[in-house]
Amino acid sequence: MINKIDTAKAPAAIGPYSQAIKVGNTLYLSGQLPIDPATGEFPSEDIKEQTARSLENIKAILAEAGTNLTKVVKTTVLLKNISDFAAMNEVYGEYFNGTCPARAAYQVAALPKDALVEIEAIAMID
């Protein structure tokens, strides 16, 4: 069975997609831009603050689905500029430690709303 996961604690989808889809005990999260759901804006133009906001959005969706960051098995990080990798990675490491998820990180030509970062995730649900 396929179930859609939505929460007002993360930004609404800005296109024809869901915040997350649960299939069995696996949760597939759409890429999360660093949009503050309360304001609809980015926290700043700082990569560290944008990374934290994207990860807070992921945490909110995971919580809505009944899971948390410790159950994330894979992430993909899209960066506007790969030179932001070290700063992004510093913040990312504050959210994931111990057995960290598998990860890929790429520089892309552009992100929606001219964001500096977008992060997607796959997680398990008990």
Rank of each mutant, 00 (worst) to 15 (best):
M1W: 13
I2H: 05
N3R: 08
D6P: 00
T7V: 10
K9P: 00
K9G: 02
A12V: 01
A12N: 04
P16V: 04
Y17D: 06
I21D: 03
V23L: 14
N25I: 07
T26D: 11
T26W: 04
Q32D: 05
L33K: 00
L33D: 01
I35L: 10
P37C: 06
A38G: 15
T39Y: 07
E41Y: 01
P43L: 05
P43T: 05
S44N: 12
E45Q: 14
I47C: 04
E49Q: 12
E49S: 09
R53A: 13
S54A: 15
E56V: 01
E56D: 14
N57D: 07
N57I: 02
N57E: 03
K59P: 10
K59S: 15
K59W: 07
A60E: 11
I61V: 15
I61P: 00
L62A: 05
L62G: 07
E64N: 07
A65R: 01
G66W: 05
N68C: 13
V72E: 00
V72R: 01
V72L: 11
K74V: 10
V77F: 06
L78C: 00
L78E: 03
K80Y: 09
A86R: 13
M88Y: 14
M88N: 08
N89P: 00
E90V: 02
E90Y: 05
V91Q: 04
E94I: 03
Y95K: 05
F96D: 03
G98E: 03
G98N: 10
C100E: 13
P101M: 08
A102N: 12
A102Y: 06
A102I: 10
A104Y: 12
Q107I: 03
Q107Y: 11
Q107L: 06
V108I: 13
A109N: 13
A110R: 11
A110G: 10
L111N: 04
P112T: 07
A115P: 01
A115T: 04
A115D: 01
L116P: 01
E118P: 02
I119Y: 01
I125S: 11
